[in-house]
């Protein structure tokens, strides 16, 4: 299906993507600080959404616990930076490895005991909440106070910058990397296996697919890259707190974009983030001003309902059809 979409789309697609990328590369030059920081968040959620998409979209194992991976990335890189002076670039990778290991544990427990579908949602949520509560009580990591990252002067080595232009490019680079990873996965043996597992796990097993190993691989990859976003988060905001980087709300935030855009498609998370993130930021800002905390979550809820009812495949496939000039394959 993916590899064989209409030929016109095949010709138009790369041109569109290349054009968009050029526009985005130059964006900080013509956009003000407000829009630049909005775009940073757009990239951030598109990135985390793409990470989630590898497990939840392609492999069809819907996780409501990705905040755990992101939080581990954030806390690991920050702790290593503050207490051992390690550059966040390496701390990022360390966090990624830790998150991947955790992902393997969660995955093993779940898959070994045939926990699928709705129950996978439940068990990932439970694991993530455990980490959330642990972090709240771990005084050495700031506990319920959170951790403030000290600013020690702008430097690439420390991933600390004044203004947001450099963060913008880091975020964009992350998004480009994960998109290339997902694209490579789509065309790989593992990627095809994952989709087959999503479509029918027993049929895959009958055809010789080691479904356990594939699902574990997807979990590890997804967890690893999600953790990188956590390191970016702490360096961008200079502050992490369990209620921010380890909360269910963040897990919802992560899965919402790919679901809205189209789970299991390459551009779903990106399209979803471009639609949703500015909207979310606006409503968050607006409703916190009015003292209506929680209203943006009502909007999220309504959006989830609407998407499931009206676009169960997400909106990206519809857009793709438009790009393809209505001639569907």
């Amino acid at each position: 299906m993916r590899a064989f979409t209409g030929e016109r789309a095949a010709r138009r697609g790369p041109m569109l993507v290349g054009g968009a990328l050029l526009l985005l590369l130059a964006a900080p030059l013509y956009l003000g600080s407000y829009w630049t920081s909005t775009l940073i968040l757009v990239f951030f959620y598109a990135y985390t959404g793409q990470c989630w998409n590898i497990l939840g979209g392609y492999a069809g194992q819907v996780s409501l616990g990705h905040a755990a991976f992101l939080g581990i990335g954030a806390y690991t890189s920050t702790a290593l930076f503050m207490f051992a002076g390690l550059t966040p670039w390496l701390g990022m990778l360390a966090g990624g490895v830790l998150a991947a290991l955790l992902g393997l544990c969660i995955g093993f427990v779940s898959f070994r005991f045939h926990i699928r579908g709705a129950y996978f949602i439940l068990i990932t949520l439970a694991f993530a909440e455990i980490f959330h509560l642990l972090a709240l009580h771990l005084e050495s990591l700031g506990g319920a106070q959170g951790l403030f990252v000290p600013f020690t002067g702008a430097s690439w080595a420390k991933m600390q910058f004044k203004g947001n232009t450099n963060y913008y490019y880091v975020a964009l680079a992350l998004l480009v990397v994960i998109t290339l990873v997902a694209r490579a996965l789509e065309r790989s043996k593992l990627g095809l296996y994952l989709v087959a597992i999503r479509e029918d796990e027993d049929a895959s097993r009958a055809l010789g697919v080691n479904t356990m190993r594939c699902k574990l691989a997807a979990t590890a990859i997804s967890a690893f890259f999600t953790a990188l976003a956590g390191a970016f988060y702490s360096n961008y905001f200079f502050y992490i707190h369990p209620d921010e980087v380890l909360d269910v709300e963040l897990s919802v935030d992560i899965l919402l974009r790919p679901i809205v855009g189209g789970a299991g498609t390459l551009f779903g998370p990106i399209v979803g983030s471009f639609i949703l993130t500015p909207l979310a930021e606006l409503s968050r800002a607006y409703f916190s001003k009015e003292g209506l905390i929680g209203t943006h979550l009502i909007i999220y809820g309504l959006l989830l309902i609407a998407v499931v009812l009206f676009f169960p495949r997400g909106v990206a496939p519809y857009l793709a059809r438009l790009v393809a000039g209505k001639r569907t394959s």
Partner: peptide
């Protein structure tokens, strides 16, 4: 489940 999650959020 996602639908019910939406209902729960609302």
């Amino acid at each position: 489940v996602l639908l019910m999650l939406g209902v729960a959020l609302v």
